[in-house]
Simulated scan of single mutants.
Amino acid sequence: MTLLAVERIKLLTTRSPWWCAIASIVLAGAFTALVVGNASTEFPASVATTQYGYQMGLAVVMVLGALSVTTEYRFNTIRTTFAAVPNRAAVLGAKATVVALLALLIGEITAFSSWGLSLLLAPEHDLALDSTADVVNVAGVGVVYAFSSMIAVAVGLLVRHSAGAISLLMIYGLAAESMVQLIPGVGDDIHKWLPFNVAYKFLTGEGESSGGMTVAGPPLSTSPLSPGWALAYFAGFALLLLSVAIVSASKRDA
């Protein structure tokens, strides 16, 4: 508990978490407003539409996760931390936990603020959370943000440089997974099992929250897993990558 408290103080006494939280909410809300504001009877808004901008917030949260680690390496404060607590695995595990909890909170605020904004912009459309799929599509965003932040922390530990870690995360998260589909023959098969594609399957399932219309939201995930197994797969990937990063950091010089 002491390590968690220390990491919480270290994280929340800097400006980056607050700016990242604001940026996540504003970016996702702005993109959602743009889409929902143009909804019509021909292309109605749905619960899935209210989360159209979730990837914008996700990118910001992953930047936050990477910076929580790389800034300590940049200013060498990580050495002081490891000198005070020689158990590096415990320190880094506490850091990842605190970042994940903050990302969870940011994700929930982002998702529900986008949904609430959509209710104001399109009150005539059916945006009620009246099914399990609808609730998961909104409330599940925070869960995806939490595990994504763990991936970002892991990348930060492995790369150690802010620019490099952030560039790698942005390129992969925003472009690389989609580009894999362009590989002749095997691209689609590989894409089915890539982590963020699988995470999106947890959020959207078979499209129930979009009313069965792909035009009412981003393209559905191609993952063959059920939403529950998709979450387990994504969580397992995040925890495995984080474990590898912690073991690596424990063996390398600070």
Rank of each mutant, 00 (worst) to 15 (best):
218 P>S: 12
73 Y>L: 01
253 D>N: 13
53 G>C: 01
125 H>N: 10
172 Y>C: 02
194 L>Q: 02
112 F>R: 07
123 P>L: 06
80 T>D: 08
106 I>T: 11
50 T>C: 11
200 Y>K: 03
50 T>L: 12
105 L>M: 13
52 Y>E: 07
225 L>K: 02
108 E>R: 00
59 A>Y: 06
91 V>E: 07
44 P>S: 05
220 L>P: 09
141 V>K: 09
182 L>M: 12
228 G>Q: 08
203 L>K: 00
125 H>C: 06
24 S>F: 05
130 D>G: 15
39 A>E: 08
91 V>H: 06
43 F>D: 12
11 L>Q: 01
4 L>K: 05
31 F>L: 07
67 L>A: 05
86 P>M: 02
117 L>I: 15
15 R>K: 05
6 V>A: 15
66 A>C: 11
138 V>G: 00
16 S>M: 14
70 T>K: 02
204 T>E: 04
230 A>V: 04
196 F>G: 10
106 I>S: 01
102 L>C: 10
204 T>Y: 06
114 S>Q: 12
179 M>C: 05
193 W>R: 00
249 A>Q: 02
113 S>A: 13
39 A>K: 01
212 G>N: 06
181 Q>D: 03
101 L>P: 03
249 A>R: 13
247 V>P: 03
201 K>I: 04
115 W>V: 10
90 A>W: 09
156 G>K: 08
56 M>V: 00
158 L>P: 04
41 T>N: 15
45 A>S: 11
78 I>V: 14
82 F>I: 07
129 L>N: 13
75 F>G: 00
106 I>W: 13
105 L>Y: 02
120 L>M: 08
226 S>M: 02
103 A>P: 07
30 A>M: 14
38 N>L: 11
183 I>R: 04
162 S>W: 08
243 S>I: 14
163 A>G: 10
25 I>F: 00
65 G>I: 05
67 L>V: 11
192 K>E: 12
80 T>H: 14
148 S>K: 12
26 V>S: 04
246 I>G: 06
175 A>M: 09
145 Y>M: 00
2 T>P: 03
117 L>A: 13
228 G>L: 03
194 L>K: 05
72 E>W: 08
77 T>F: 04
38 N>D: 14
157 L>D: 14
181 Q>K: 07
242 L>W: 03
219 P>S: 09
66 A>H: 11
205 G>D: 10
180 V>Y: 02
241 L>H: 00
200 Y>C: 00
124 E>A: 11
96 A>L: 08
